[in-house]
């Protein structure tokens, strides 16, 4: 393209169609080039914004085992006891924290096996209490009641599901747990990761 071909919009042209197609070409090229330049800075960094979405997708199978307590310290009659979960390592973006309290669980012994309930109520995340008198779990915020097996016992309970269990194992005389949090207030148990 040469400068001779470019005319101002108010110039009178004898060959209207040639002028029109040339002008159309210039306008389309200009718009295209401007669009590329305008979009480029955003395109250069859009992946960095999407990064957290990409990271959470791959993590579901990577929940680490955390050592909680010797099996012998759990009562054999199945009475629940509350334990803090200290994660060996927690990654927050660029910082690696060691031995971080991440939450708490109720552990119940059943023979050689152990059941673990997350302390958080599946309704809206308040801390659930174990009531020894009635031998059940009770959420002091919105009065959800759960049986020893974790299921909702009172129909008036607002919690959409029972207490959240997590994988446990007994190894070397210790109870180990894959500690997780779950999405509150939905019927399905969906881990947050």
């Amino acid at each position: 393209m040469t400068e001779e071909n470019i005319t101002s919009p108010d110039a009178n042209s004898t060959n209207c169609c040639d002028e029109d197609s040339r002008r159309k070409f210039i306008v389309v090229s200009t718009l295209a080039v401007s669009a590329v330049c305008g979009v480029f800075p955003f395109a250069a960094g859009v992946t960095t914004i999407l990064d957290p979405v990409k990271k959470s997708a791959g993590n579901k199978e990577k929940v680490p085992w955390t050592k909680v307590v010797p099996l012998t310290s759990l009562s054999e009659d199945g009475k629940p006891a509350k334990y803090e979960i200290i994660l060996e390592q927690v990654q927050d973006a660029w910082t690696t924290y060691k031995n971080v309290p991440a939450g708490a669980v109720y552990l119940t012994r059943k023979g050689a096996g152990v059941t673990a309930f997350n302390l958080k109520c599946p309704h809206l995340g308040c801390a659930v209490d174990y009531r020894s008198k009635s031998n059940d779990y009770f959420c002091p915020c919105h009065n959800s009641t759960f049986g020893l097996d974790g299921s909702v016992t009172d129909v008036k309970s607002p919690s959409p599901r029972g207490l959240d269990t997590m994988d446990t194992k007994v190894e070397g005389g210790f109870v180990w747990i894959r500690f997780q949090q779950f999405r509150p207030n939905i019927v399905e148990k969906v881990p947050l990761s």
Binding site: A44, G45, V46, T47, T48, I49, L50, D51, K54, A93, W94, T95
Partner: peptide, 29 residues
């Protein structure tokens, strides 16, 4: 966009730039 991952302090500035450079998807670009 860099600001979204950058943290200005003596213990986090290099660290967050490292994070952008080596951990964040497309951060190096």
């Amino acid at each position: 966009l860099l600001w979204m991952s950058y943290s200005p302090s003596a213990q986090t500035a290099w660290e967050s730039v490292y994070f952008i450079q080596y951990q964040v998807w497309g951060g190096w670009f």
